[in-house]
Design a protein around this nucleic acid. Sequence first.
DNA 1: CTGAAAGCGCTAACAT
DNA 2: ATGTTAGCGCTTTCAG
Lengths: 338, 338
Amino acid sequence: MKKKLSIRDIAEQLKVSKTTVSFVLNGKAAENGVSKAMERRVLAYIEKVGYRPNRMAQGLRTGRSKTIGMMVEDISDAFFSSIARKFEEILSVKGYRIIYGSTENNTAVAKDLIQVFRNHQVDGYIIAPPPGIEEDIRELIADELPVIVFDRTLPNLEVDSVLVDNHQGAYRATRHLLDNGYKHITLVTLTSEQIQMRERERGYLDCLAEAGKRAKILRIKYHEQREKAVSDIEKNIPADTDAVLFATNYLAENGLEAIAMRRWNIPDQVAIAVFDDCNWFKLFKPSITAVAQPLEAICTEVVDLLLQKLEHAGHKAPRSLHLPTHLVIRDSSQQRSQ
Amino acid sequence: MKKKLSIRDIAEQLKVSKTTVSFVLNGKAAENGVSKAMERRVLAYIEKVGYRPNRMAQGLRTGRSKTIGMMVEDISDAFFSSIARKFEEILSVKGYRIIYGSTENNTAVAKDLIQVFRNHQVDGYIIAPPPGIEEDIRELIADELPVIVFDRTLPNLEVDSVLVDNHQGAYRATRHLLDNGYKHITLVTLTSEQIQMRERERGYLDCLAEAGKRAKILRIKYHEQREKAVSDIEKNIPADTDAVLFATNYLAENGLEAIAMRRWNIPDQVAIAVFDDCNWFKLFKPSITAVAQPLEAICTEVVDLLLQKLEHAGHKAPRSLHLPTHLVIRDSSQQRSQ
DNA sequence: CTGAAAGCGCTAACAT
DNA sequence: ATGTTAGCGCTTTCAG
């Protein structure tokens, strides 16, 4: 049984002081005048016995945990889990680990999670915020803790953020449906007031308004029983609908089922477009048109902003990035006759 | 700016000692004879000022971080991210958070991750092990650290594990295809030696052997370029194949594309069944037959085993659970003529 | 019933 | 160039 080593053991074995070991460990050998030879000796020994400093002790001492708290709506969602993976990739090379929490868009859960992250002394916060936590986020910022929000933001909240251009994405998808000859485009969205949803709605509305068409919006409650969502859509989708834009992947999942129940043929009777792409969409028959979010870019931008704050703390004016989406046109939105 | 409070501040404000506060905090008021009144007073004050103990200090002192390390193949995979979500749900009510790491089945990455988790002093390990880390896991166990492996295990490794009955799942899927009149069933699997893959293969082989049919196995390398995997399958799938069992979701994703390129009609020219279900499968046309894993059960069992170890340490004989899979029969595996 | 004090492993100012 | 030491915030033993 490998006994747990401490820096003191290392120092004793090596007949040097803890300080020296500590300096070497933290790459501060040179600046503190530890000889190159000594540095190599320490490094070699550490390597040999597989010593790694105790993060708890380090953390207690330095106030930094090398841990990032990531709060999303649902880690099992394809969008957020892809994001989680990329954050992990980028942050792990910088020595950070991630602890995550799913809010289900619940304010109380989110508030609690922020406290939990605080207890864990996370060094930074990556947050896809549910409604109602503006104040909590402001407190983090007031305490100089690095916070980046992404995917959506909150009204009147000044914070670094990385968003996609939801308006543009929905606008283009709608435009595309119109261009392909569809006339009665229904938006299926959530009842939620979240900004990204509002923006998607606005994109859709603006496009239809320009085209002089009437908008039809079907609002579904978040996370009821799956079956309820399906029947809700099935029952309430306007009968003259000839195209549907689903505002989220989750809605598409239920909505496609509803459309199958109605036996509407895609794309001849009804066209489909979905906000948020998914690997499986290209395999559907017909394949499904989607607004793809730039996952890679979102993640690198978030981490960039975060690392900047982590490395040189200090209040800069919050920056807000808007990344473009990309419309992936597939078969579900183009009539065969065309 | 809310100043960070320490237990000492609380004690001073309240004019009691840190000890008393600590006892109350840890629910040890009664057993240490702190008066009910005092307990209430402390609790009320803590609540009021929003004090939460510093985990780093607690951790340093107690050696416990209230953090679990979860190592999976890829957190962005639908299976693992669903699992991650459920672990989170169950563990968070017990006060644990999860840090995760994706191995991509890479031995070196996994070894490193175990070290990282150790530094972070995680209290327990939940591991979907890649090959070659038996020794590392044995070390954890030797050091009395709670380890549970799931999804797969490693040869000659004695450790608590929660697996599904891969053999049975593949056997039944194969049986089902035979029963539906398909005669040339090809298994598309990974080149990987992993036990769960081997078991699936055995299930398939045993079933065909019983039926006196010839087996055809197509092995694909893990995580090449997606396009390579697709063309690999397209080129090498036996021409007389009339049914395909994909050993994983990932293979199905590429294999379905390959089949589309070949313009084989499902289910008339070729039937499809996939190991591992996915929400989208019921929406495919035709909907796709799949072997569903009991996610919920896997998670509760893993956490159960883990919490037992966490709560009363000590060496018990390792337990190994095998959970049944469930064949979800859909349209991709039944000829219309039937 | 309550308080004083040791010490977990580490970092970094200060001493030598 | 290297060593000594205080103390981060907490838990827990032991004394009062």
